[in-house]
């Protein structure tokens, strides 16, 4: 699949510190990349460079083949950017506000009208379109800001904490919208502290700390890389007739690493559960084991995140 966002050695120095240092990153067309990191890690600066708002001090980046420095205007035309704070003009009516931004993107009046109506309906704000933004709740304001960033049907959508101020229902609407955008082939660059959101929406995760990329991969890849192989737990209805070790040593010794066990249960790690587990379970059945449950112990993304943030 085509690489839509490409950063090579992207660096941003401010007067007193380096916000982003040598960032190498590629995001494919239609991919959702969650960009994680503690406060001040360099997430917002990275987004600002990729959306042609700030110029990189060193390195280069392109969005849809356009250089973020030399072709800044094209890049800004192609991307949508939801900023950390909605930053609305509260004296304006919602529809007028969105119309103003549509005009800035050079959209024709009729196109603006249709697109605004479509998005207002999608986010359940059509009835409030004539109200002043000062009358909107926090969640509604965030939705308006999200609509603003989607007005130009961006090829890449950069979302900075999109659900931070939203109630669960509104947050789900946003997540659904992101999923829908991905389905339509849009690329989403999602900066978030919400790890559930990151795991449920993102194809891949990138973690940044002190301006440096410290991890990149799918949620499962990161879990495996930083928390180890999946942990499987087997519960039996009654004690096994023979020892666990005898069963494992018979052809599985190099594939299963036992963590703990009793007569009625076994916890182990395996690097290749798809190949190992069916074989092992078959052997258990042959040995007359009455299996109650076979379950993978949950390893959360939070564990990965905390491990990375604390270690590096």
């Amino acid at each position: 699949m085509e690489t839509l966002i490409r950063a090579e050695g992207l660096t941003k120095d401010f007067e007193k510190h380096t916000a982003v240092s040598g960032l190498d990153l590629q995001v494919r067309q239609g991919e959702v990349l969650a960009f994680l990191g503690p406060n001040g890690a360099g997430k917002t600066t990275t987004v600002r460079m990729l959306t042609s708002i700030l110029r990189p001090t060193r390195g280069a980046a392109t969005v849809a083949g356009h250089d973020v420095v030399r072709e800044a205007r094209q890049v800004r035309m192609l991307v949508g950017h939801l900023t950390e704070f909605p930053g609305l003009y509260l004296r304006m009516h919602a529809r007028d506000y969105l119309d103003f931004y549509g005009e800035l993107y050079g959209m024709a009046r009729a196109t603006r009208r249709d697109r605004i109506q479509e998005l207002l309906l999608q986010f359940g704000l059509a009835d409030a379109a004539h109200r002043r933004l000062s009358e909107f709740s926090k969640g509604m304001r965030q939705k308006v800001a999200l609509i603003r960033s989607m007005l130009n049907s961006p090829r890449a959508l950069f979302l900075d904490e999109p659900t931070s101020a939203m109630d669960p229902h509104s947050a789900k609407q946003v997540r659904d919208a992101v999923a829908q955008l991905r389905g339509q082939g849009h690329t989403v660059f999602l900066c978030t502290h919400n790890l559930f959101e990151a795991e449920s929406l993102a194809d891949r995760l990138a973690m940044i700390r002190r301006g440096k990329l410290i991890a990149l991969g799918t949620p499962q890849e990161l879990k495996t890389q930083f928390l180890g192989a999946p942990i499987i737990e087997i519960q039996l209805a009654r004690a096994l007739g023979q020892s666990w070790s005898g069963l494992i040593q018979n052809g599985l010794a190099d594939k299963i690493r036992v963590l703990d066990y009793s007569e009625m249960h076994l916890r182990y790690r395996t690097d290749d559960p798809r190949a190992t587990n069916p074989y092992f379970l078959a052997k258990l059945s042959e040995a007359g084991a009455k299996i109650v449950t076979v379950a993978e112990t949950h390893q959360s993304l939070e564990q990965v995140y905390l491990k990375l943030v604390q270690e590096t």
């Binding site: 959306t51 931004y101 800035l104 800001a145």
Partner: peptide, 14 residues
């Protein structure tokens, strides 16, 4: 101060 400038900076405006 009200954070409404950054969305403008993200627009295609020069």
């Amino acid at each position: 101060e009200r954070n409404s400038l950054e969305p403008l900076l993200g627009s295609p405006l020069s």
